[in-house]
Design a protein around this nucleic acid. Structure first.
Lengths: 222, 222
DNA sequence: CGAATCTTGACGGGATCCGTACACAGGGGG
DNA sequence: CCCCCTGTGTACGGATCCCGTCAAGATTCG
């Protein structure tokens, strides 16, 4: 049984989510602010956290940091502001996905399924990963079918594949691969994403697994 | 029964791992620092070592070297820092896998299964190895067909052949064969790889088994 | 002493990376 | 409605790095 912790200060949203999630047979715990959210995460050990960024007591990013200090539980962030800066900060802090209010309940449920599926995959097997027609082995650095990748390509691909389904900000990739001085050089990244798609995707013009989230980053969808 | 030695200075982590591993029917030994870890590795002869890099007494990389001096026991490294430099140093020193804290216990268990499975396969197939037209016996250090190898050539070849299909970085070979002060002297390695290919490959100009992965290292392909 | 082995140095070809440039799509505002 | 602007995908050429190879001096060991 999947346990979900919902953190939001608006009673209506809290109620709507509890009802909808319970109807899908999720076990739901709720918290109205950041402090009680951190306590509830310890007590309830949820499998997923849905976190509103606009809390009365703590900054949402601080809550993410508080959780990431000791757990890798997936976090889906909700925010009323559509600004990109918030989203990127949340993702860099370690959030897994992001939904902007107002949102349809179906959209949220789809993200919930995506995230829970990703952790299930990770637990089951991380030796080899399938991507389109290819099988990728991260430990031995091999790709099926006579595909060869350069060091930089491996570096980027590994970051995405080790976080299946998770939205990775461009900033995250650039600091990881090139270093923090290169966060502005997004064209490096575009270059290599195109290269990876050419080598791995069935139809590079319409990628199925190495997905772009405009304004945000990239995502590997199994 | 698989014996696992867990080395970590944080009591909580030590306890969590012991309980979780014992529940999966692994036999668990623990050590709180580097010195006792090296002793415990002698006494308990573990089949796998889980090693935290942030130990109070010794640098984690030194512990890896201390173990690698006399055993090929698989090592999974834990680290609090996500920095790439640590990761590269640990893997070059001879670690088999790398997990960043905080980590899910299921992720670690998956890696444990992956590593034990890999080494089990490896040991079973280690008697004699075919490479092109030649048959190589690592225990008796002989090659079929009147081919003689020098000590240094054996050292390099053995490292590659004991990790079939796996990518071995140049740093790894250099530290293993010449010592860590020689990681810059890649031309040593080029020299000997050419030598090995001349002696073993059908067409040394187009090697089929001792493969170069540009920018990364070498790989033995069976 | 001599032969095998190990250590250096230098050089050319090729792959990779970097930087610039341009086409295209979508959204917002004039 | 059109234009601009942002964000993205794609192409191309030069600079740089990496690797294989030849050659030769130094060292070890029989």
């Amino acid at each position: 049984m999947t346990r979900i912790l919902v953190v939001d200060d608006e009673p209506q949203i809290l109620r709507a989510l509890r009802i909808n999630l319970a109807a899908r047979h999720y076990e739901v715990a709720v918290a109205p602010d950041g402090a009680s959210a951190l306590r509830a995460a310890v007590d309830a050990t949820p499998d997923l956290v849905i976190l509103d960024l606009g809390l009365p007591d703590l900054d949402g990013v601080d809550v993410i940091h508080g959780l990431r200090g000791w757990t890798t539980v997936p976090i889906i962030v909700l925010s009323g502001r559509a600004g990109n800066q918030d989203k990127i900060e949340a993702l860099d802090a370690g959030a897994d996905d992001y939904v902007t209010k107002p949102f349809g309940i179906d959209e949220l449920l789809a993200r919930v399924r995506a995230v829970t599926r990703r952790t299930a995959i990770q637990e089951a097997e991380l030796a080899t990963i399938e991507l389109g027609d290819h099988v990728i082995d991260l430990t031995s650095k091999t790709v099926s079918g006579d595909v060869r990748l350069t060091p930089t390509e491996w570096h980027i691909l590994e970051l995405l594949l080790r976080n299946p389904g998770k939205l990775i900000s461009q900033r995250q990739v650039l600091t990881e691969v090139w270093g923090s001085r290169f966060v502005k050089e997004t064209h490096y990244l575009r270059q290599y994403m195109a290269q990876l798609r050419r080598k791995l995707e069935r139809d590079p013009a319409h990628p199925e697994h190495l997905i772009t989230e405009p304004g945000m980053g990239y995502r590997f969808t199994p």
